[in-house]
Nucleic acid binder design. Structure first.
Length: 249
DNA sequence: TCATTAATCGCAC
DNA sequence: GTGCGATTAATGA
């Protein structure tokens, strides 16, 4: 089994699962509404899924059976376009929901999801979730806010893809990764390939390399293999904010 | 170490 | 701005 530090034995339920009470993801909507679930039996229906790096756990077109929450790890969510090209829709980290667009009336997933590192997922079946949503207005309200935010983000992304230049989209991608995953020893705390940057920015691998080279020459970023470090975040932000397309999520 | 994979660059369109 | 193909660097078995 994969190691799930810091979730030691003492933080697990009698059945061996990591208990939501010990979970550190305070932003997780289940964790946030923990009190209302105490007597419902909902938490007992949680399943844990362990994914190794590179493992795909949602396949496009597969039937929707439930909803995933990231307990620990990093995930990319993507959609396959016309020429088999990947469009990365978003990245998810600890505490975030995955597969929510397939939830509801949709029968099949319109997206795929792959673990970018060893990842532990909490999984709830569609039935269990629907019951929880009907019985707990606070939980439902939080979910509604989440969907509203996602929709807003998604619309902003359409705008950025259609109106920003390649360079701006790549810069925006770097800032997004930085906002979301932060910085470790001067490098972005998420090792992505050039192709993955391209798939998120809606461009090609070559273009990303060209923009990276330019940014390196200008002293805005540093690169060491896969690791990318932002050296002048203020200047990068300025490039985007001038166009008012700076996404805040 | 060697083999595989990723990054980079030049060039044509 | 795009995409192919050759070269070089990095990764990992």
């Amino acid at each position: 089994m994969l190691t799930v530090a810091p979730y030691t034995k003492s933080k697990r339920t009698s059945s061996g699962k990591i208990s939501c009470g010990a979970c550190e993801n305070t932003k997780c909507l289940v964790k946030k509404n923990l009190k209302v679930f105490e007597t419902s039996g909902f938490l007992e229906q949680k399943n844990e899924i362990f994914c190794k790096k590179g493992q795909q756990f949602i396949i496009e077109g597969a039937p929707v059976n439930g909803l995933f929450f990231t307990l620990q790890g990093k995930v990319k969510v993507f959609r396959t376009g016309i020429n088999g090209k990947e469009q990365i829709v978003r990245f998810a980290k600890d505490g975030e929901i995955i597969g929510h667009r397939g939830f509801g009336t949709e029968e099949y997933y319109s997206i795929g999801a792959i673990a970018l590192e060893d990842t532990v997922l909490c999984y709830f079946s569609k039935d269990a979730l629907q019951k929880a949503l009907r019985e707990n207005p606070e939980f439902t309200y939080d979910m509604m806010l989440f969907y509203a935010n996602e929709l807003n983000r998604s619309e902003s992304k359409v705008k950025s893809l259609s109106q920003m230049t390649v360079r701006e989209r790549v810069v925006d991608t770097l800032l997004y990764i930085n906002r979301k995953f932060g910085d470790l020893n001067g490098f972005l705390n998420l090792p992505l390939s050039r192709k993955e940057y391209a798939d998120y920015a809606g461009t090609s691998e070559e273009q990303v390399i060209r923009v990276f080279s330019a940014l390196k020459k200008e002293g805005l970023i540093v690169a060491s293999g896969k690791k990318i470090g932002i050296t002048d975040i203020a200047l990068l932000k300025k490039e985007i904010s001038e166009h008012n397309f700076f996404l805040d999520s």
